[in-house]
């Protein structure tokens, strides 16, 4: 099988697992109230998210320098700017303390926390001998 074929198959697998995870989350989590047993539902769904990331990792390993750079630049600059615009929109149209604005702010904090952890690991792994 050619590299290109493997790449697109893993890309499709990645999207497929993400879509499947969305269905699983939709089936398990009620639409308008908290889960009945959040203590086990939350770790279970974090595990599902882990599977999504694992499938993405399989695809990521098949990407080359240029493709990775494209993803990283687009997610950092495009993703962050898009999220900021949405955050401002929600605050302006629904109020700073509305449920939807607070939800978006939590998401932003989670993104920052995830960024910080990965950045820290990246920084520590990149260390060398200081002379």
């Amino acid at each position: 099988m050619s590299h290109r074929m493997k790449y697109w198959m893993l890309c499709a697998l990645s999207f497929g697992v993400a879509a499947l995870a969305g269905v699983v989350i939709g089936l398990i989590v009620p639409a308008a109230r908290a889960s009945d047993n959040p203590v086990w539902v939350f770790p279970l769904l974090v595990g599902v998210c882990g599977l999504v990331m694992a499938a993405g990792w399989l695809w990521w390993r098949k990407t080359d320098d240029l493709q990775q750079q494209g993803q990283l630049i687009s997610w950092y600059w495009g993703g962050n700017f898009g999220a900021l615009v949405m955050l401002v929109y929600l605050a302006v149209f629904f109020g700073r303390h509305s449920d939807i604005s607070l939800g978006a702010i939590y998401l932003f904090f989670a993104e920052f926390a995830g960024f910080f952890v990965v950045w820290l690991v990246w920084r520590l792994r990149g260390r060398g001998q200081t002379e």
Partner: peptide, 29 residues
Amino acid sequence: QADLADRLEISRQTIIAIEADKYDPSLPM
């Protein structure tokens, strides 16, 4: 370009960008 990309296990887009002097590859590449 597609054949070379496949032989090197990289994308055709990367070959095109390098040939056009739009992208500098990493040292391993």
